[in-house]
């Protein structure tokens, strides 16, 4: 009964949480973009110059440039390739997480939401970095792949698949399950798990 209530309420709350997320998307994406800027400009300083947030878009300037269709270093080309990345592609996880959490009516839910937001920002940062990797692979190609520290194309593809297509929906569920421990909902779930795991 509690589980059914949880799922129905989550669906009912989603229009509200998605609306709030859309209204304040740059606020939610800010920490992840800052982390992504820090991470990429530190580990891949030969590739990335920096990233900043413009509305809901992450503007990333690279160390690559283009001249007559040829990819060169920014210095040689006299221009810089910049990427525009839609942060909503990963930040919608916050709206989903908020709906799951709000539907559970937990104690100290605001604190729990803040903790969840902290973890989701880190996960979103990896999602954004994966989009950068995929975009540079498609746009820059071999000069990007031959840069020091860049993983092979196949690994970039798997990382993108995992961090962008899966984590924004899987991570909120994992966080929510972790945070409902001890609640009546968790006890219901625990009883189901005990009954189910006795069958082998």
């Amino acid at each position: 009964m509690l589980l059914r209530r949880q799922f129905v309420l989550t669906l009912a709350l989603m229009p509200i949480t998605f609306g709030m997320w859309f209204a304040a998307d740059s606020l939610f994406a800010g920490p992840a973009v800052w982390l992504c800027d820090l991470l990429l400009s530190f580990f891949y300083s030969d590739i990335v110059q920096g990233a900043r947030l413009q509305g809901a878009t992450m503007l990333l300037t690279t160390q690559f440039g283009e001249h007559n269709g040829v990819i060169l270093s920014a210095q040689e080309a006299g221009n810089q390739i910049a990427l525009e990345i839609n942060t909503r592609l990963v930040s919608y996880s916050i709206a989903f997480y908020a709906a799951l959490l709000a539907a559970s009516s937990l104690q100290e839910s605001i604190t729990k939401f803040c903790i969840g937001l902290f973890w989701l920002s880190g996960i979103m940062c990896f999602g954004l970095a994966s989009i950068v990797g995929k975009d540079l692979l498609l746009m820059v190609g071999p000069p990007f792949l031959s840069a020091p520290g860049v993983p092979p194309a196949d690994l970039l593809a798997v990382t993108y698949q995992f961090n962008v297509l899966l984590m924004p929906t899987l991570a909120p569920i994992c966080l929510w399950l972790w945070q409902i421990r001890g609640s009546p909902l968790w006890q219901t779930l625990e009883a189901d798990i005990k009954r189910a795991s006795a069958q082998r």
Binding site: F7, T10, L11, M14, F18, R88, L89, Y92, A95, F96, L165, P168, T169, L170, I173
Partner: peptide, 10 residues
């Protein structure tokens, strides 16, 4: 991009 992925995971 946003709603259906959530519904599928739900």
């Amino acid at each position: 991009l946003y709603l259906w992925p959530v519904l599928i995971m739900l």
